[in-house]
Design a protein around this nucleic acid. Structure first.
Lengths: 339, 339
DNA sequence: CGGAAGGGTGGAACCGCTTCCACCGAACCG
DNA sequence: CGGTTCGGTGGAAGCGGTTCCACCCTTCCG
């Protein structure tokens, strides 16, 4: 393995000079620089990132903590992150989280600059104690789809998103609108679903519609679970004419349930999702679109800027817009659908 | 930042002793060990992975090179890899590839033990020159869904998969069976699709059916592209009664095309896919299932064993089984469908 | 009872890089 | 023309670990 000393010897200079050339520092004469570059070329020298990292106190690595990274929305956010990192010198290290224990282990490990130079956390509010330690250790951190006091984040207005979806159904004439969202006791502190539900409730109440307990169902963020919950809704005496699911994955579960109950969508049941993941266009799903790719991209750029600019990261909230995408799963309720 | 020297001072021992305790080496008396552990506890000491890596010549990192990591099949394989790494000490560094240049850059960077201790390459046959350099540098490598001479790999029999799908359609009574696969000139050397096509051709010829040129279409591995190609097929004078798509993503494109041409599936058109990704069950797609999760898991385990056992990795081929999953998109052709 | 053997230990050297400091020589100034 | 200044450079120190070697102190054996 060829080292900086070999290059120095070949070029007939000192190691320090080679280092200066490598890092584009001034104070190297053009002729020396050329000689060093020639030696690097000749020996096919590549700096050892570990040694560099040890010396510099950083490791050219960005940690991404992401719960259930195989979920379509997480993948799309990751895509944005990868795109942002594409032209940087940073590698992406993936920390998947599938349980709170899991999450704590990762945060534990990442509470030091030597594991990752910066942290991108998706959809997961870091526990306060970890956050405090991260701050103390000076590890820059950006949250995407989550918030914490004093931490920069990229978010959308989930409450407003809930309002948008519900207003859409309301404006079509629906009054019996159900909601399917994540378990409130998910152990991670995910809040998106609850906030969307909040918007749903606000709009209904503003329209003078009581939010029935039986119309609001919670379960794990999975298609099958959502399908089961939807099945329960569809068997109620007063069946809802529309369902707002707090994610597209759950919405497709609702579609499956409707199908297996012999109900046509949208004639018998309108369905609105949230996210606009790739499958949604294919499924013709009406949904509230949030810019998933952009959220990852912006979060990563924000982190990179802080890292490269050396400025302490600003605790700003970056808000991304939401947009109703009307496709084929929503329409007016049939007259007399009730009862 | 607390270092090994701090721990040594606190415990009243030398740095070497602390290191021995950390690495569970013998030749440390129980009492000394206890004292060191107490000091570690007290100071909340965590070894610096960079320093450790520099000294040891490895970095506790596994590189995963994956083209288009957002594709559902890649995500599922990644899930297997992450699961296998879960209880190891290795971090996962993701190298996404979206162009051959891209690929070469990554391989270039990874041709040294200091970037990753081992390499997992998905669906991508490494170019021979890179392979030679990797081998020279002693970087263990395992291929998943790809092969290269002398490199261990985890694969399925794609030719057989093509046969399975085509036999299924044939046994239902179809004779006009089209194929939609990846571009042959994809620049990456992907071969899965071509091998599935090979199996398709073998079965047809064995049944005495000529493979029509017009029934075989190639394009980028995307739903929309597949939908466009399927549209071309559906407008042919002699319309095929069945389509075998070389992946489920492409199969869903075919489904979309059928829908927009007013054709019912499976009555008017049977469709078989390949992979059995998550969406396939939802879409009711008949497909050839390959164990994606397992492929990632096994590949990673294989690599970890080699890394931890220190044994030079065996250049074995690990074959994973294929299985026909019949759902709702295939049935007998309507009599007189031809013409 | 002296010497060999060997467990237990401290500390120096080393991994490959960055950076600081000392130093050299040329240019510039009074 | 001697003394600053400053661009350019070599080399040592340091980053935080691991490992090797030397050494000490028992223990055991002849």
């Amino acid at each position: 393995m060829v080292t900086i000393a070999d290059v120095a010897a070949t070029a007939g200079v000192g190691a320090g000079t080679v280092s200066r050339v490598l890092n584009d520092r001034p104070k190297v004469s053009p002729s020396t620089r050329a000689r060093v570059l020639a030696a690097i070329e000749e020996l096919e020298y590549r700096p050892n990132p570990l040694a560099r990292g040890l010396s510099l106190g950083r490791c050219q690595t960005l940690g991404v903590v992401v719960p259930f990274f195989t979920h379509a929305s997480a993948v799309e956010r990751l895509r944005g992150i990868v795109a942002a990192l594409r032209d940087s010198r940073y590698d992406l290290v993936l920390f998947n989280v599938e349980s709170p224990v899991h999450r704590d282990e990762h945060f534990e490990a990442l509470t030091r600059r030597d594991r990752a130079d910066g942290l991108l956390v998706l959809s997961l509010p870091p526990p306060p104690d970890h956050l405090a330690r991260l701050r103390a250790a000076g590890v820059p951190i950006v949250l995407v789809d989550a918030t914490a006091p004093g931490v920069p984040c990229v978010v959308t207005d989930d409450v407003e998103g809930g309002r948008i979806a519900t207003r859409h159904l309301l404006s079509l004439g629906h009054r019996d609108i159900a909601f399917i969202g994540d378990s409130t006791a998910n152990g991670f502190g995910f809040t998106s679903s609850a906030r969307r539900e909040e918007g749903y409730g606000q709009v209904l109440r503003a329209a003078g519609i009581r939010v029935r307990r039986s119309y609001v169902r919670h379960g794990a963020h999975e298609r099958d679970v959502a399908a089961r919950l939807a099945g329960q809704l569809l068997r109620l005496r007063v069946r809802p004419t529309a369902v707002f699911a707090s994610s597209d994955v759950q919405a497709t579960g609702v579609l499956a349930a409707a199908r297996s109950h012999g109900l046509r969508v949208p004639e018998d049941l309108s369905v609105v999702g949230f996210d606009d993941i790739e499958i949604s266009a294919y499924a013709g799903l009406t949904t509230v679109r949030q810019p998933l790719f952009d959220s990852g991209y912006l979060g990563a750029r924000h982190l990179l800027d802080a890292l490269e600019g050396g400025t302490p990261i600003m605790a700003a909230e970056h808000h991304l817009p939401l947009e109703l995408v009307v496709r084929l799963t929503t329409t007016k309720p049939r007259s007399g659908a009730r009862g």
